[in-house]
């Protein structure tokens, strides 16, 4: 654990994350998420799928360079079947990269921007983590944390849930976050980006595609 990781994972990092709900807005609209218990089930499933995938990609990005950037970004594409989710991931990645290049200037970030103009968010997250001296496991933990905290906050705003209750739920997820980061880091240590976690979440795909076609929405994703 280091101070840079705290800054990087903080929702106050001004990189546009606050306007993404990661499918929560649509899950609330459909009634699938309606209270703290259903939010808990939503977040656990999200962490075990999209969260683990993001964690693996972020961990791998810590050691990426050169042609590895485009390769890793293509691996992210292949794990994101929904075009709406690819767009959301690339938008968030682009914003994070732009902000990070001002906060933590590093040749690797310039190299990534040159190789992939709007990379998937986890790839950028890993690259920024490396620029700040974080390990692959740190990067994976930040990605896993992002995968649940943004949606949890969105649920608080959309459903008026008790924020303390929701944070208690997040605290309960801490061991799962650690496990996810460890799994991702060891998958990444195997060295082959093709073998990184690829856990699909069909319901998230459906929610994302419904959301992007919804006229009235408060969140980008």
């Amino acid at each position: 654990m280091n101070a840079m990781l705290l800054l990087l994972a903080d929702s106050r990092l001004p990189a546009g994350g606050h306007a993404h709900s990661g499918g929560t807005e649509q899950a609330v609209a459909s009634g699938a998420v309606h209270d703290v218990a259903s939010l808990a089930a939503f977040l656990r499933g999200r962490l075990a799928t999209a969260g683990l995938v993001a964690a693996g990609l972020a961990a791998a990005a810590v050691t990426a360079s050169g042609a590895g950037w485009a390769e890793l970004d293509a691996e992210a594409d292949a794990r994101t079947a929904s075009p709406a989710q690819r767009e959301a991931a690339r938008t968030q990645g682009r914003l994070l990269l732009r902000v990070a290049r001002r906060i933590w200037p590093a040749p690797a970030l310039d190299e990534l921007a040159a190789a992939v103009p709007s990379p998937h968010h986890p790839v950028v997250l890993g690259a920024v983590a490396a620029a700040t001296g974080c390990s692959p496991r740190d990067a994976a933990l930040a990605a896993a944390y992002n995968a649940v905290t943004g949606p949890a906050t969105a649920a608080v705003r959309l459903l008026g849930l008790d924020p303390v209750e929701v944070h208690r739920l997040l605290a309960g997820l801490a061991p799962a976050l650690e496990d996810t980061a460890a799994t991702a880091a060891s998958a990444c240590a195997a060295g082959e980006s093709a073998r990184l976690p690829a856990h699909a979440a069909p319901a998230l795909d459906l929610l994302a595609e419904q959301h992007i076609r919804t006229e009235v929405r408060l969140f980008i994703s």
Partner: peptide
């Protein structure tokens, strides 16, 4: 040789079964 689609599905993991993020009530 370039990746087109990579997907894993897990059934029987309590985190995933019944989660509205994964299979819902399907």
């Amino acid at each position: 040789g370039r990746p087109l689609l990579r997907q894993e599905f897990t059934v029987g993991d309590p985190a995933v079964d019944g989660s509205p993020a994964v299979y819902g009530d399907a």
